[in-house]
Amino acid sequence: MMNLDPRTRIIIVFIVSSAAIILKEVKSLMLLLAFTLVICILSSVPLKKATMRLRKLWYVFIVLAIIQSIFTQGGDALLTLGSIRLLTTKGLEAGISIILRMSIIIYSALIIIIASPLDMVYGLAAMKMPQEIGFMVLLAIKFLPLIRDEFIDSITAVQLAGADLKKIPLGKKISLYTYILTPSVTKALRRARYISLSMECRGFRAYPTRTYYCKLKLKKFDYTIMAATIASIIAIILISW
């Protein structure tokens, strides 16, 4: 339950998700998923809550897996309809590996997502990413929900003004939505301008080089966990060979 350095998080996620794409065997993907979950627990990702919140995503994956299993042929037939082989061992494997692969990528991404966004900016800066770009990423992440909220507010206002969105014909509805989206974006952009003003008031980019209030330092734990990740991935690859 230690607080990982943001750089450690980025490196782990990079390695794990690349491995998830490279590995093909169901067995090794299972091992990788188990490993990812252990790392998640170590870096205190709220697994149960996250799984609940991503519920809708799992349905999509299951549908994907079913499609994948039906269209991948080969191996022995498990389920046939007349002369059509509906499900084969190869197909089942393909379906299962898609679910495993997606789970690995999602759960490993959680390791980054639960870190504080500002920490991630520091982490990116420490990895030689320009500070400005790091900040842009941070702001973009903050702005998405803002734009969404503005849009929801506008939709509420539109309905309370008496417009029945269900009864308006599609063409008119599309023009109505674009109509509303413009002010929502305008409002969000105006907020962005205030943010940039207040950042400038605090001396953002006033000097070419920048010092940091928080100095990031890789701890022993970070090195251990990075080494463990690399070792485990190599082991998993070797096992599946």
Partner: peptide, 8 residues
């Protein structure tokens, strides 16, 4: 009631 009916 839909919001639009309340709004009317």
């Amino acid at each position: 009631m839909p919001l639009s009916h309340i709004g009317r």
